[in-house]
């Protein structure tokens, strides 16, 4: 396909950089194997991948993160925050319950706001409706998460919050404000 000739190595760097960049932009972290497969699929000469990665490291702000099985993933810090990569890894590690708990507590503490539960259906959490239902059921009985409580806005949207960081009345108000109040006050 492509004619690489003497400019071969330049193109390869550029293509690998784009491969990682576009994946990161798309919310995906990639393994070394995936990068190698990409290079092979492009029918490019076998080259030392780590050498290429080293050469594009600063341009991409190339970062790595490991999952619980010791696999290493790459992403571009220009395109993806460490927080986002961290969530992807925790989902891969099936650390969902704690991920939800930590996220809710952090949001209740910091913003402060209750968390709408369907956020966990969105990327990077990507829970199916059934999975989310199971997780929320588990949350409400697990003693580790006794501080997590539910509320809902008048339009039916369900929120979860940590009563370590906000009272019920406060969570109720904020849920209603997020869903209804702010749209009535544009």
């Amino acid at each position: 396909m492509g004619d690489y000739m003497d400019e071969n190595i330049d193109y390869l760097q550029e293509d690998v950089a784009d491969f990682i960049t576009l994946n990161s932009r798309d919310g995906k972290i990639v393994t070394l194997e995936e990068i190698e497969t990409f290079i092979n699929n492009e029918e490019k000469d076998p080259t030392d991948v780590t050498e290429i990665l080293e050469s594009i490291k600063s341009e991409l702000d190339l970062k790595t993160i490991d999952d619980s099985e010791g696999n290493t993933f790459y992403y571009s810090g220009n395109e993806m925050t460490d927080k986002y990569a961290g969530i992807i890894i925790r989902v891969k590690n099936k650390d969902i319950l704690k991920l939800i708990g930590d996220t809710v507590r952090e949001e209740s503490r910091r913003y402060p706001r209750p968390t709408y539960v369907t956020m966990f259906n969105l990327p990077p959490y990507n829970l199916t409706e059934g999975e989310l239902e199971d997780m929320l059921a588990e949350l409400s009985i697990d003693s580790e998460y006794r501080d997590l409580k539910f509320t809902h806005a008048s339009n039916g949207t369900v929120f979860v919050y940590s009563n370590k960081h906000m009272s019920k009345g406060y969570a109720d108000y904020l849920a209603e404000w997020i869903e209804v109040g702010q749209d009535e006050n544009p």
């Binding site: 798309d26 986002y84 956020m119």
Partner: peptide, 20 residues
């Protein structure tokens, strides 16, 4: 308004509604 790879923060009520 939704979690996105580039963004540290998001807010459901944001008028920055652009998303995939």
């Amino acid at each position: 308004s939704t979690p996105q790879p580039w963004a540290e923060f998001d807010s459901k009520g944001s008028r920055w509604t652009a998303q995939k």
